[in-house]
Design a protein around this nucleic acid. Structure first.
Lengths: 200, 200
DNA sequence: CTAAATTCTTATCTTAAGTTAACGTTTTCA
DNA sequence: TGAAAACGTTAACTTAAGATAAGAATTTAG
């Protein structure tokens, strides 16, 4: 758990400005609550059974969210640079989470621990913005899931893949194909066929 | 916008006790913020473009959540008695929502208006529990979507239907089949075949 | 550096979902 | 109440995804 360097702090500040802007006074307090976690390839940010003890923000690298049902893996999400990473429900409730969140590349994650989060919520100077920040993270996940359900209902696997080619460049370029296939809800064999088909 | 009768109040209090319990003093304040909305069959709780101005709780009847993408309807959810009903994101953000929420039977909906919600959040006596209540509603939706995505990835349409037969009795019994088919992500024709197949 | 593991592609075969159309039944509402 | 609309089933045909297996290419690790 290291402190952040100034480059990392600037990166974070710029990116979250879309959601919440902090003035100088607030920012000085906020950064005291941040730390950094480094993950090697294949290391886990959280594993099932653990309580997710922090909200993360990917400074560099990438992670995959997945869980296992009936022996089958389900890839729910990928996070890259400047995206959040958290098992949101476990973080909020303190219940053990059911997902794996695994680094697929060596990754540097900015983290806000549960304790730091609560301290900020109890600090009148930050409470409002932190609450808003938390809500926006929740919405971020909710919308993502809503779109995903819609894609399964309205689109064929091929259409889903074509859409990912447009909107998911990072996923296409940096994730192994069998994870992409699983994310799309198809087999790797089928994805391979789709790729062949659309290249004609 | 009528007030609630005592039967309706009891029903609500019993059901939400799973999430949050209110003591007498809190309850007396709370109920001043509740009202009732009656929907005839096919009337809308919200429509796309509108801002969702209240969180609802189905006292009786049923509703269907759906939206239209590329001319195709997507059934996201059904709510029956004792379930929440809200376009959560629109309610929180004040942005227009994209979904239809339509009564499929004559329905009675308990509503908490945005204004009432904010008044309660500003009332120290209720703030904590209302905040918790709000978070639980959000989680309720999040978990529902997570499970739904998982079902599309790990299960065949037939398996999804069999699961619905077990866990979605209300949906099976009270919803027209073509809505169920759409909810499962298949065509009505295909659902008809599945039904025939599994009856053998 | 090499053996093992992982990843991707290709082929074959089976199976089931999509599409369209037709038909009978039920529901709606003017 | 009677015509129109909506709903569910069935059939015929097309299409593509799943399962399995085999082989090539790449990556990983001892």
């Amino acid at each position: 758990m290291d402190a952040l360097n100034s480059h990392q702090l600037n990166q974070f500040r710029e990116q979250i400005a879309v959601y919440v802007e902090f003035n100088e006074a607030e920012w000085i307090v906020l950064i005291q609550h941040l730390s950094v976690e480094k993950l090697k390839k294949k290391e886990y940010f959280v594993e099932p059974g653990e309580v997710c003890k922090s909200v993360g923000f990917v400074l560099s690298g990438s992670v995959r969210y997945y869980h296992i049902i009936d022996g089958k893996g389900i890839t729910n999400y990928f996070s890259f640079e400047n995206d959040f990473v958290s098992s949101y429900k476990s973080f909020l409730t303190g219940e053990p989470c059911i997902s794996y969140i695994q680094a697929l590349e060596p990754s540097v994650i900015l983290t806000i621990s549960k304790k730091a989060w609560e301290q900020m919520l109890n600090n009148p100077m930050l409470a409002y913005k932190i609450e808003r920040f938390g809500r926006l993270i929740a919405e971020h996940y909710l919308i993502c899931y809503e779109d995903r359900v819609a894609s399964f209902i309205t689109q064929t696997p091929e259409e889903r893949y074509l859409k990912l080619l447009e909107n998911g460049k990072e996923i296409i370029q940096r994730m192994p194909q069998h994870y992409i296939a699983n994310f799309l809800g198809i087999t790797p064999v089928s994805l391979s066929r789709i790729r062949k088909r659309i290249l004609v």
